[in-house]
């Protein structure tokens, strides 16, 4: 068992990425709501340095500039729920946050933490996929701040695994401002309103003009090793009139393209059925919106 040898609470982003740059592993602590239980259950081995980044003020907050919404990694789920910009422009994300864990956890858990945990069922990840979000990664090799952006869709590589290098810190996400007539939907299936790990989740985004869908995005959670964009489902919808036949074809495509597993929460068969039935339901609602 690795023992923690150092506790470090940097006050600035520079200090934090410098720490990551140093030799030896670093465990990053933000809200702690996933870190603590993972550590206790032995699923996560603490590295030699425990770095608490919560004090880095610049990593928290939501701002709109240049047609993009930037959300700092330390922004909590409650911050998002209460933020007017997010409420106005990112309905899927609000819906996902509303179904996220419990109030006590929403008050502390950060968007960055949810992204870095890279759970296939992570509640905010599906909306971020649908919203074409990019992750903003920062490092400081040889004392020089280096930022790189990566589409969220490329960020996840497996359960708990991302393309973030050990020397990089997730600073936030950037989301292009959706147009005025944008329709966004999020659906999470569980027996409770929240405090539940998604059996499946569905994100939808697009523009419906003259009965025809465009800029369609569909993503699914808890049906693969990572949250995934649903390219076949999107293709079945893009540029088509949203008729019963289109909806049926899209729902069928959705069922066919997901590759869920059997686990303690649901069977693969049931997850496919839910994906089919609920994709259909969401599209029905969009058609009647």
């Amino acid at each position: 068992m690795t023992e923690i040898e150092r506790y470090y609470a940097p006050a600035s982003l520079e200090q934090a990425v410098d720490c990551l740059q140093e030799a030896g592993g670093v465990t990053v602590l933000a809200g702690g709501t996933d870190l603590m239980p993972q550590k206790n259950a032995g699923r996560l081995k603490p590295q030699r340095t425990l770095m608490n980044i919560r004090g880095i003020a610049e990593l928290r907050g939501v701002e709109l500039s240049g047609g993009e919404i930037r959300i700092g990694a330390l922004t909590t789920i409650t911050d998002l729920l209460e933020n007017p910009l997010v409420r106005q422009h990112l309905p899927q994300l609000i819906e996902a946050c509303n179904h996220f864990a419990s109030d006590q956890i929403r008050n502390v858990a950060t968007l960055g933490g949810n992204i870095c945990n890279a759970s296939p069922a992570g509640d905010t990840l599906v909306p971020l996929l649908v919203l074409d979000a990019r992750v903003d990664l920062v490092s400081r090799p040889e004392g020089r701040m280096l930022r790189r952006g990566l589409p969220v869709a490329e960020f996840f590589v497996g359960p708990g695994k991302t393309r973030k290098a050990p020397t990089e810190l997730l600073a936030g996400v950037t989301i292009p401002l959706p147009p005025e007539n944008y329709l966004g939907r999020f659906f999470k299936f569980g027996t409770r309103p929240a405090l539940d790990i998604a059996t499946i989740s569905i994100g939808f985004g697009g523009i419906l003009e003259g009965g025809v869908l465009s800029r369609v995005r569909v993503a699914f959670g808890a049906v693969a090793a990572t949250p995934v964009r649903a390219s076949h489902t999107e293709a079945a919808l893009e540029g088509r009139p949203l008729t019963e036949a289109t909806i049926a074809a899209a729902a069928a495509a959705a069922r066919d393209e997901v590759t869920p597993i059997d686990d303690v929460r649901a069977s693969a068969w049931y997850r496919k059925e839910l994906i089919h039935n609920m994709t259909k339901r969401i599209l029905d609602h969009v058609a009647h919106a």
């Binding site: 602590l29 603590m36 419990s102």
Partner: peptide, 27 residues
């Protein structure tokens, strides 16, 4: 429960409620 699933350990920190079982004491 020690996992943030039951709320028995709820406290308030800087004016918000949270599960103290999920919070690092150093924080």
């Amino acid at each position: 429960c020690g996992e943030g699933e039951c709320g028995a350990c709820t406290i308030q920190v800087d004016g918000v409620s949270l599960n103290s079982c999920l919070m690092f004491a150093v924080d």
